[in-house]
Amino acid sequence: MPAIDLDRIAELARIELTPDSAAAFRADLQRVLALVDRLQAVDTTGVAPMSHPLDLPQRLREDVVTEADQRDALLALAPTAENGLYLVPQVIE
């Protein structure tokens, strides 16, 4: 099993790891991956992946506007909002 690039994974997941917690997580992940690595031993040639328990087509909704404006209720949930906008630290494009 290759060594896990934990920094890259944590960055993709946007989870900050302190040096202490990184060591613990690394050990945990190694254990979990050792468990899931048992899958590698199985020959699955020709088996179609099953991404869902339901073998049904997607249901479609009609193209109708059903949602009323709920801005005030929704913005009230936000940590920071102003002038009808959610606010986040400056995004530099």
């Binding site: 193209d63 109708v64 949602e67 801005r71």
Partner: peptide
Amino acid sequence: TTRSKIFSGASTAFGAEPNRQACAIDVAL
């Protein structure tokens, strides 16, 4: 050119005030 969004029943009309056409699904509650 649909009236409503692809995965929610919120309106797609252009020019509304900010977040007035963002329903709970669009906001990912």
